[in-house]
């Protein structure tokens, strides 16, 4: 998987069933899980033991052996195994509902970040106008509200460490909030099936300390000092090009970038062209215009997501991949 940042391990942190919990929802949710878990064990194990006892004690030893007692009902027993489970599940219900309400009402002072899901990457727009792909940067101990929408099909935004998830719908906004209380890099998954790149539609939440966050804000537009082809190489992973385009010649969802520049391509619906600067620019801004034969028209437009310098940087980078 091409993620530039190493995230905290989900499997090797936390408890047996849960990854390490970060933020306000984890503790209540994990306790509820283990409440149900141990409640189930307390019911399940005796049930199995009793069944095994019955199997041994009442095993048929002679072919014509009959049951020693016929019993068709017992009001006491039936009440005993109907009423307590009902009370238990009602407790679980109230507990779950409270937690759910907590998750659905964001604090008023939260910082708002727009999230856009596209096949197959996440784009984040910050209040100061900055945009980022595949990486959500937030300060620690600050409530953050994500205002999310999709450009194409339904996606779903899931951060296991935060215990949050919400569908991301086209033509509609959905909300999600969290407050990270620990610095670190946390894994984001798309959890609503969205096509070929679904399992590659990942992102990272970078939770920074207050000072680091200030630094990040200050250098957010850095990259100006990088040479174009180096910037392009950086953008290749940070803007999620790598999800669909390889640089080693293997074919993914889109054509590989290796030896792309200067090659001759045939297009869906006829026509051919040599790949030059103009073609690459067009393919980034208006990907559906000329789709290389053998591939589907699935790439979203990057118009507005990349500035001119960044597009030039990508072109420069592709030129180096001969």
């Amino acid at each position: 998987m091409d993620t530039s940042l190493q995230t905290e391990s989900l499997l090797h942190t936390g408890t047996t069933f849960f990854p390490e919990g970060v933020g306000p929802f984890a503790s209540s949710m994990d306790s509820l899980f283990y409440f149900i878990f141990w409640g189930s064990v307390i019911i399940f194990v005796p049930l199995i033991l009793v069944s095994i006892y019955f199997l041994i004690a009442y095993r048929r030893k002679r072919e014509n052996q009959l049951a020693t007692k016929q019993m068709t009902h017992s009001t006491f027993l039936e009440l005993a195994w109907t009423v307590p489970p009902t009370i238990l599940v009602l407790i679980v219900f109230v507990w779950g509902f409270k937690g759910f309400l907590h998750m659905s009402v964001a604090p008023l002072n939260s910082q708002e970040i727009h999230v856009s899901g596209k096949k197959w990457f996440w784009e984040f727009s910050y209040p100061n106008g900055n945009k980022g792909i595949g990486e959500l940067v937030v300060p620690v101990d600050t409530p953050v509200t994500l205002l999310m929408t999709s450009e194409d099909v339904i996606h779903s935004f899931f951060v296991p460490n935060f215990r949050i998830k919400r569908d991301v719908l086209p033509n509609r906004y959905t909300k999600l909030w969290f407050e990270a209380d620990k610095v670190g890099n946390y894994q984001v998954f798309c959890t609503e099936y969205c096509g070929d790149g679904h399992s590659a539609m990942l992102a990272v939440v970078r939770v920074l300390s207050a000072e680091d966050y200030e630094d990040w804000l200050a250098e957010a537009n850095s990259g100006d000092d990088l040479p174009l082809d180096k910037l392009g190489e950086k953008l290749y992973t940070s803007k999620a090009c790598a999800t669909c385009h390889s640089t080693d010649g293997t074919s993914r969802v889109g054509p590989t970038w290796k030896s792309l520049f200067g090659s001759k391509k045939a297009f869906v619906g006829g026509g051919t062209a040599t790949v030059d600067e103009n073609y690459i620019h067009e393919s980034i801004v208006n990907p559906g215009a000329k789709v290389v034969a053998g591939f589907d028209n699935v790439m979203p437009t990057y118009a507005g997501s990349l500035n001119d310098r960044e597009i030039s940087a990508l072109i420069a980078y592709i030129k180096t991949l001969q």
């Binding site: 209540s28 509820l32 899980f33 507990w95 509902f97 759910f100 779903s156 215990r163 949050i164 998830k165």
Partner: peptide, 13 residues
């Protein structure tokens, strides 16, 4: 577990 509203948020899908 899945029927509990809060837990389902984490476990869904």
């Amino acid at each position: 577990m899945l029927g509990a509203l809060s837990l389902d948020v984490h476990l869904h899908d």
